[in-house]
Amino acid sequence: MILKAMLSIWMAVIIVAAFLYTEAAVGFPGETSRILFFHVPQAWVATLSFLVSMIASATYLAKRNLKADYLAQSAAELGFLFCVLATVTGSIFAKATWGSFWNWDPRETSIVILLMIYGAYFALRSAVPDPERKRVFAAVYSILAFTTVPFLIFVVPRITASLHPENTMNPTQPGMDPKTLKVFLGSLLAYTGLFVWMLRLKMRILRLEGLKEPRFGDFI
């Protein structure tokens, strides 16, 4: 309860700071650079949840522990949500700065592939009637999909050059304004906290739903 309250206050502070405390970066039309505080953490959470889902899937295959499957499923669902958010916010920014909603920039390509993987994952889950098999298949698919990621990282940037602003907005570069950096890191923290809170909520829902169906998978 206290953690939840703290998270909401922190989130509110970040939103206010993102618009009032920092100054818009030079070289971007109008106030568009403020997207940094929302879009990048969303993309970060989308990637993080993909990773969490894959690790939980591998754990499930090794231990056949229902909780690991709940974690894998919850992380995948949240990852999908944040993927969509990052895609939408990114598109709006792309329209404002580069003139079109979609450019097949390497990062746009990767997020589309990630969306397709998530879509396939959910389709597979809903198509297998036996609960035990469903969990195994979903976990196996998750690992297969993850196996192809290194290839994507290697292959995708070769198609087109990236449009994404690298230097001005990359926090590891010295060019970033200290105020912007502070708020950006705060926002990363807030989004990660939000992710963890939502993840635990979703897992609780799955566990309660699981109580209705027979839970003999526990014995296995």
Partner: peptide, 20 residues
């Protein structure tokens, strides 16, 4: 071993085949 086999096969395979 799933239902809705035909459509599912393309949906699952395509993301895996994209890098290739």
């Amino acid at each position: 071993q799933a239902s809705a086999r035909g459509a599912l096969f393309s949906a699952l395979s395509f993301p895996l085949l994209l890098p290739l």
